[in-house]
């Protein structure tokens, strides 16, 4: 046993703020692993994933889910997917590699991102003040995911429910992004 202990801290300390019609809260308990797809192996990787957990490679800016819905794949680049799944251990890379069992390259990204959920009936009104892509109801559907820039900050936006969006920014930007969302909420609501 070591004399010292390392304590885990999330990017935003579990921040949560209620506004009228919108809740802004840090997403915790999720892991994110980049799964790089070597070009000659696209098919092999896909069939391995399908076999292991029923996953297919999503279309660009779409997502797919495993049979048990525990793993979501986001396709933000042609040659890679991001696996978004409920897991809190510090070995997410090994965990997902074992579960997908596909000959890809895996890189843990769980600590790279701060994840913020903006949910509620007025979430779109709040987000349209900072999000330059079209997130209107019928265009950006549940399961759609996009990478763009908001308030100078590179941001991934994922719609995980009818009125719920998860925003991911590099962890060091987390405080600034949270602030940007809260300013929008104050301006709009």
């Amino acid at each position: 046993m070591s004399d010292y202990e390392l304590v885990v801290e999330s990017a935003l300390n579990g921040a949560e703020h209620e506004f009228e019609g919108v809740t802004v809260s840090e997403v915790v308990g999720k892991s994110l692993v980049m799964v790089a797809l070597p070009r000659p192996k696209f098919k092999e990787i896909e069939s391995s994933m399908t076999k292991s957990c029923g996953l297919v490679l999503p279309e660009m800016e779409h997502s797919t889910q495993s049979n048990d819905s525990s793993i979501t794949l986001w396709r933000l680049q042609k040659n890679q997917v991001l696996a978004y799944f409920s897991y809190e251990g510090n070995d997410a890379e090994v965990n997902i590699a074992n579960r997908l069992n596909a000959p890809a390259y895996y890189t843990d990204q769980s600590d790279t991102w701060a994840m913020i959920r903006v949910s509620g009936p007025r979430s779109r009104d709040v987000l349209e003040r900072i999000c330059p892509i079209d997130i209107s109801k019928n265009v950006f559907s549940v399961g759609n995911v996009s990478r763009t820039i908001m308030e100078h900050i590179g941001t991934i936006i994922y719609r995980d429910d009818d009125d719920s969006y998860v925003l991911l920014t590099m962890r060091s930007f987390g405080v600034s992004m949270l602030h940007a969302i809260e300013v929008s909420a104050k301006n709009v609501l």
């Binding site: 004399d3 390392l6 304590v7 885990v8 801290e9 990017a11 769980s110 600590d111 962890r171």
Partner: peptide
């Protein structure tokens, strides 16, 4: 280098040690 979740904690541990 440690996963960032341990970053704050590692700084404190190193200073203590």
């Amino acid at each position: 280098a440690v996963q960032t979740r341990y970053g704050d904690s590692l700084m404190r541990v190193l200073m203590e040690a």
